[in-house]
Amino acid sequence: MKRREAREKAVQTLFQLDGTTLPVEEAISYIAEEPVDSFYEMLVKGTREKQESIDEVLTGKLENWSLDRLPKIERTVLRLAAYELLYNEEVPHKVAVNEAIELCKTFGDEKSGRFVNGVLSKFEQQRM
């Protein structure tokens, strides 16, 4: 499985998990075929495990929005991208941001891509 496909499946899984008590392993079994791709699994499990700290960071970068008010797809993509930006050092920041924008084009609309880009650009500004 290529990384783009892994990210797409991760968004689908995380979207499914948002607001439910469904166990991560069960959600993964609905989306991924055996054997489960390690990058995909790392994205899903890592994002879920770090979700509280990711949400804190994202809340600080949202202007005039709360995380709960965001459309579910934007919230899901932002969480996944924030996980990669904060906890996955092997993925360059630009790649993580570009992939998030592409995920928005696939699952959201043009506005969601611009919004996600604006929020994620604050991660890069903070690094400088």
Rank of each mutant, 00 (worst) to 15 (best):
G118I: 01
T47A: 15
L86D: 07
I28S: 08
E34S: 14
M42T: 14
G19E: 05
K111D: 09
S38G: 00
E110K: 12
L17M: 10
A32R: 07
T21P: 00
Q16V: 04
Q125D: 13
A32I: 03
G108P: 09
E5S: 11
D68E: 14
T59S: 14
F107M: 04
M128E: 13
D55F: 01
E33P: 02
L22T: 15
W65T: 00
M42A: 14
S53P: 00
W65P: 01
N98D: 05
K50H: 15
E124G: 00
F115V: 04
F115S: 04
R75S: 04
R79E: 14
R79Y: 04
L17I: 11
E89S: 14
M128I: 08
E34P: 10
K9M: 15
Q126F: 10
L86N: 05
N88P: 00
T76W: 06
L80P: 05
F15A: 02
L80E: 06
K61I: 04
E56I: 11
I54R: 02
P35S: 10
V36W: 03
E124V: 15
S66Y: 06
Q126Y: 12
Q51F: 03
L67D: 08
E102Q: 08
Q16I: 07
L78V: 05
A27Q: 10
E102V: 02
I101H: 00
I101W: 00
E110S: 13
E25Y: 01
R79I: 10
F107W: 09
D18W: 08
T76N: 09
K2S: 14
F15P: 02
E25S: 15
A6N: 08
F107P: 11
G46I: 10
K50D: 04
T76K: 10
V97N: 03
R7W: 02
K122W: 04
Q51P: 00
E124Q: 09
I54F: 03
Q51H: 03
K61C: 03
V116R: 00
Y87P: 07
E41C: 09
G118C: 03
F115H: 05
Y83V: 09
K94D: 07
I101F: 00
E52L: 12
L14I: 13
I28G: 07
Q16N: 03
W65A: 03
Y87F: 15
D18A: 09
I31M: 09
S29K: 12
D37G: 02
I54Y: 01
W65L: 04
T47Y: 09
V95R: 09
V91L: 12
